[in-house]
């Protein structure tokens, strides 16, 4: 599996570390449902079989966080972007 880093180009997956699903967003700790929302954020996952947006860190390259769109059934990479841009 090779990941096209927007900064470094096509690089071996070995250069990257994986965090997981990019969808969960840190909830508002002041919201009335914060305890439930934090539980879901930390523990529950959609775990899709198919396209998934996920966070990868290019540790052996530009050291930036990426959002990688990848099909979990085939490992085909559908797109990549810097996390700062993809998640803002």
């Amino acid at each position: 599996m090779r990941i096209p880093c927007p900064y470094c180009g096509l690089r071996d997956a070995h250069e990257f570390s994986y965090l997981g699903d990019a969808a969960p967003q840190r909830p508002d700790p002041a919201a009335p449902d914060a305890a439930d929302a934090f539980h879901d954020y930390v523990y529950l996952r959609d775990n899709p079989a198919g396209p998934m947006r996920e966070l990868w860190y290019h540790g052996a390259g530009c050291r930036r966080w990426l959002v990688v769109d990848r099909d979990t059934r085939t490992h085909a990479i559908l797109g990549t972007a810097f996390a700062t841009e993809a998640r803002s």
């Binding site: 997956a13 570390s17 994986y18 997981g20 996920e54 979990t72 490992h75």
Partner: peptide
């Protein structure tokens, strides 16, 4: 180390 259903 990454999510996968590929069995590969």
């Amino acid at each position: 180390g990454y999510n996968s259903y590929a069995q590969r």
